[in-house]
Design a protein around this nucleic acid. Structure first.
Lengths: 185, 185
DNA sequence: GTCTATAAAGCGATAGAC
DNA sequence: GTCTATCGCTTTATAGAC
């Protein structure tokens, strides 16, 4: 059986969970140490920049996942509707049907907004941009495509807020269904 | 000229701003002291329960504002469409055209979710419930009204996330316009 | 590469003078 | 009702042994 933590990247999923659950300020090093199974010494060995570098690495990891599974399919799929379908699948999977919130959205609303303004903006700009591109290739007029893309990403983020607030992950699934209908029209 | 802070309620707007800007954990007592112009002694005189009571009072204040300006008009307006119009006005005003985030939504996504689960859930349950009620009275079928209400509140929250993340408050105004169109249909 | 020990600062909260 | 001083604790971060 391989070591659970062999390199820096192995810690990122646990790190992401801690930040999602406790926010940036609430994610203390002792919580992080507990979640990753690593002492503070090891954490600072992997992340010399401390907590800020940990959160930055998590954001970068999330961005890479979305680039591969969402943004790239939207931009490069021969059939734009197939790209959109891949996006919907990835979103449903990533957010665990509404049980997992979006860390980037949480950072946008929360304490870490100023500190990570660039990666946060980049994530949402890429997402809306790639979706608008797919919608244009699917036949929508440019201005209409941009609005529909904005509305779609916005609806997903809002549904995550509502699902978490109401403790009702079905609200997220219902929202995804509505989004799908609207994108197909 | 009257005293700036004469009673507990006078501190709530400044308190709300601090929590909105820094989150629950990030809102330190020294920041709160600075924002309200009150020393720690005075703060604990008004809020014996400390920071948790401060945030609770802010949430209660927000809930009261929405009850009066949003939930009640939706439920009691003779013309349901007029009630919806009042809601849209209030939302546009309260969120300052997208420049101000929703503290309840931020708490839902953030560190304070567990601590304030009840008021957070209550706020969104009341909002979606009151809007669904107005939509039913406007002629929508019950199931359809509930979905449209959920979609509307969700769209507003998502637009606040997107506007903050992109640093583009116009994204919020565009979302409100789309919502208005959909509710009128 | 991982740990323990520790430093320095900030935290929420309290006490007591005025 | 407001303040300052202070307590006890936790925080991030570092140092150094292994």
């Amino acid at each position: 059986m391989p070591k659970v933590v062999a390199e820096r990247a192995d810690t990122l999923p646990a790190l992401a969970d801690v930040f999602r659950e406790h926010g940036y300020d609430g994610a203390s090093l002792s919580l992080i140490s507990q979640a990753t199974g690593l002492g503070k010494g090891s954490l600072y060995h992997f992340f010399p920049g401390g907590k800020e570098e940990m959160a930055g690495a998590v954001l970068h990891d999330i961005d890479a996942w979305f680039r591969k599974r969402v943004f790239m399919p939207l931009r490069t799929a021969a059939d734009p509707q197939a790209g959109i379908a891949l996006m919907m699948e990835a979103v449903e999977t990533y957010f665990q049907s509404g049980q997992r919130i979006c860390l980037v959205g949480a950072f946008a609303l929360g304490d870490a907004c100023d500190r990570f303004a660039d990666p946060v903006r980049g994530y949402f700009a890429e997402w809306t941009g790639a979706l608008a591109d797919a919608l244009m290739r699917a036949g929508h007029h440019p201005s209409e495509a941009a609005g529909l893309a904005e509305e779609t990403v916005s609806a997903i983020q809002g549904a995550l807020v509502l699902a978490r607030a109401l403790g009702d992950s079905d609200a997220f699934s219902r929202a995804l269904a509505r989004v799908q209908t609207r994108l197909a029209a």
